[in-house]
Design a protein around this nucleic acid. Structure first.
Lengths: 235, 235
DNA sequence: ACCTGAACACCGTTCAAGT
DNA sequence: ACCTGAACACCGTTCAAGT
């Protein structure tokens, strides 16, 4: 609100022109998406409502619908923005394996910064954001020398794995309220696992200690490496 | 509605006892979950509302809240019911690899029969249903002779992959309305991929033909095998 | 062409009141 | 103890009306 009063550029008024806002306050799809991302980052998935958007943008809901067809389209656009930026930043090294690891880690970091992305990716896997990841991973599978018939399977396996993490990452984030942070929540899960009936769940019980200490980013990468190792055996 | 009039057993009336329904129409958590599953199977995730439940069960919403704390708990219980049954049915063979493949396929078939499960699994991965899958897969990793420190990583990778598929499977199901079935929708995605700019998305473009013909169940299993092959290299 | 905001058709959840 | 159903506090979306 207050920040709107400063730095507002308006087109010079002529006789019959109304005040048209062309400054940074001008409504546009880009600005709507930008503010949507801010709301999502600050308050999580539940925080993004048309009510919240209209007050932040100081307009009516109809104005938003002029630029955006639905909430789903808005979320897809927001996801696309964030993922495009992340994927394009990835260094294409000469070593395909390294590049695949780099994309994977880049997406992990995006999920960490914007956990709501996880829900979005797994909710609509045919959207542009997922296609970009798939393309990038697929190209590297080619570069790896995977036979043509197997390239599709390999890329799909990697994507499946990445989207699996995305969903779980977002799920944890959804449960975190103000006070509890991620590691505190995982701590809770660990104690829960430790208390599980060892007769019925021997493996879960045994692994609870490792769960408490494990680094999520490291484990995620370990999984990628497992799939890459599997791909290598097929050649 | 009509089926309620038949076969209703009631406790014999004594002076001060009211008509208490102990027959199959008696309200109970089990019956609520059972009907919820029926609604979900028939109409998808959106179909399950308290309004729909109350009319099907012929009660008020308060009655449901007497047995169930929230919609989330209801969905978790429904997921748990279905997954427990599926996991318990899996034959524990002497070959761990075969058992892992069997669980994976069993879950694939569950997703196919109840696509709403997919959303649920990836929305709350710490719930009992996911724990059961994790336990089963983890035990097989142990049986496989994976060193203890690596067992957790391996089981987590497999679970991640399975939950990735779960999310995507549910996503497609969500988009399917009455007339379009799954293969028709995938056909649509395939043509979309074929029309993508070959300069920007060479891999996606090339792979579009394979996408059209691929068998989802087979591809899912291929991914499991890839991870299993990767696990094997670490020993 | 773009914006306003009341109104609509839904949700999940609560709760005073009944039996 | 269990059930009823109106009421509440939300949603996303629409649309007649304004400029």
């Amino acid at each position: 609100m207050e920040q709107h009063s400063r730095l507002v550029k308006t087109v010079p008024m002529t006789k019959h022109s109304k005040t048209i806002n062309t400054g940074k306050d001008a409504l546009s799809k880009a600005r709507i998406i930008k503010v949507a991302i801010e709301i999502l980052d600050a308050g999580g998935e539940d925080a993004l409502t048309f009510r919240a958007l209209t007050t932040r943008l100081a307009t009516g809901s109809g104005a938003i619908y002029w630029y955006v067809a639905s909430k789903d389209e808005m979320l897809a656009a927001a996801t696309n923005d964030v993922i495009t930026q992340a994927v394009s930043k990835v260094e294409r090294t000469t070593e395909p394996r390294a590049t695949i690891r780099a994309v994977a880690l880049s997406i992990f970091d995006v999920l960490d910064a914007h956990p709501w992305i996880g829900t979005q990716l797994s909710r609509a896997p045919w959207q542009s954001a997922v296609l970009q990841i798939f393309e990038c991973v697929g190209e590297q599978c080619q570069a790896l020398g995977v036979p043509e018939e197997a390239q599709f399977h390999c890329a799909a396996a990697l994507i499946n794995y990445v989207l699996g993490l995305a969903g779980q990452y977002a799920a944890v984030a959804r449960l975190m309220t103000r006070e509890t942070n991620r590691s505190a929540f995982l701590e809770q899960v660990a104690t829960q696992w430790a208390q599980v009936d060892p007769a019925a769940y021997p493996f879960v019980h045994q692994v609870a200690a490792q769960f408490r200490e494990h680094d999520e980013r490291e484990q995620f990468l370990a999984g990628i490496d497992l799939i890459l190792a599997g791909i290598a055996t097929g050649q």
